[in-house]
Amino acid sequence: MTNNQKKALFSSTRMHSELVYNMTKLEGNPYTYSEVKTLLDGITVGGRKLSDQEQVLRVSKAWEELRSQIKQGTFTLTKANFIHFNQIVAENEALIVGCFRTGQVYIAGVEKYIPPKAEELDTVFEQMMKEFQQLEADVHTKAFWLFLQCAKHQFFYDGNKRTAQLMMNGFLLSHGLPVVSIPARLKRSYDSKMTRFYDTNKMQPMMKFLQKLADSGRYE
C-alpha cells in the first residue's frame, strides 16, 4: 500500500459512523447520527424498526469490507465484486441478491427514463466498463462517471446507488484519494440532481456536485 492509500483509509476509518449515517440517510433511514454511532458501538437503539437497524449494520459491513479489500489489494471493478457489495447492502431488502436483476425496474419519481431490460444488463455492464477504461479523465471524474452510470443502469433490484457509491469510493481509495460521501443535509439537492440526470442524461450538474464535495476535503 502507498502512503496516500494508508492516509485515505485512515480518514475513512475515522469517519466510519458518518459515512454510514450519510449513506443510510439518503435511503430515508430514520436513524440519527448519534443513534448510528450508538448502534455501531454494539448498543441496540430502542423504538426503531428492525429493518432500519439491519440497513445501518449492512452499510457498516460494506464499508468495512471495502477497506479490507483495499488493504489486501483485492479490490476490483468486476461484475463479481459489484454483485458482492450489492449482496451486502441489499440482503433481506431486495427481491433477489447475488446476481443482476432478472426483471424490469423503474425509478421512483423519474418520468422519462426507463432502465435497461434484464436480458441486456450483461452487455450494458461490459460496454460501461469498456467506456470507463477508455475514458481520458482524472481519477475523480472517472469515479463520478462510474457512480452515475451504475446508478442509471440499475443492475440490481435494490441498493443500486449504495453499491455505486461503494465502487466509486473503492476506485478513489485504490488511487490513494479520500472517499467522497454525500452529506445527509444535502439529500434534497442530491435527489433533485439525480432525478434530472436520469431524465436528461446530462451528467454535468451531478459531476459538479460531487467534485465540490471532493474539493471540500471533508468526508461527509
Rank of each mutant, 00 (worst) to 15 (best):
S192L: 15
L40K: 12
I83T: 07
N4R: 15
M203P: 02
H153N: 15
W145E: 01
R14F: 13
Q127Y: 12
K117P: 02
A8C: 02
T2Y: 01
R101Q: 01
Q211D: 10
F75I: 11
S68G: 09
H153W: 12
V124T: 01
F10Y: 12
F197R: 09
S192T: 15
S68Q: 14
V124A: 06
R58W: 05
T74Y: 10
T78V: 08
L177A: 06
N160H: 11
T141K: 11
Q204S: 12
F125I: 13
R196G: 08
K142A: 01
Q149V: 11
G28N: 04
N201C: 09
I88Q: 00
D215Y: 01
T102C: 03
E64K: 14
L135K: 14
Y21V: 10
F100N: 00
Y33E: 13
R162A: 06
Y219R: 06
Q53G: 04
Y33G: 06
K61R: 14
E136W: 02
H140W: 14
V180S: 02
H84L: 10
N92A: 12
R67P: 02
E35A: 02
N29W: 00
K212V: 07
D199C: 07
F209H: 10
N169C: 10
N22C: 15
S216G: 14
E120L: 10
T24F: 04
P115K: 03
K208S: 15
R185C: 09
K25N: 11
T141S: 13
L95C: 04
L39Y: 00
T32R: 03
T32P: 08
G217A: 00
T163L: 07
T195Q: 13
N29Y: 04
G47V: 02
E131A: 13
M168D: 05
C99G: 05
I114S: 07
T24H: 06
H175S: 11
H16P: 03
L146E: 05
K187N: 13
K117Y: 10
M207T: 13
K208C: 10
M206F: 09
T24K: 09
L146W: 02
K193C: 11
Q104R: 08
L19M: 15
A118D: 08
M15I: 05
Y198Q: 07
R67L: 07
E27M: 06
S60D: 15
T163G: 04
L57E: 07
R196E: 15
A164T: 11
Y33S: 02
V89P: 01
E93S: 12
K117S: 08
V180P: 00
F144T: 05
Q211P: 02
E65Y: 01
N169Q: 05
Y106C: 08
Q69I: 05
L173K: 11
G103K: 12
N29K: 03
A62I: 04
E64T: 12
D215K: 12
I83S: 04
Q149C: 07
L9Y: 10
G103D: 12
K25T: 08
M194F: 01
R162T: 00
R48I: 00
L77I: 14
Q104V: 05
V89A: 03
R188V: 14
L26K: 11
T13L: 12
M129N: 00
Q149M: 14
V89N: 00
Q204T: 15
Q72R: 14
F82Q: 07
T76G: 04
E35Q: 14
I182N: 03
L57G: 04
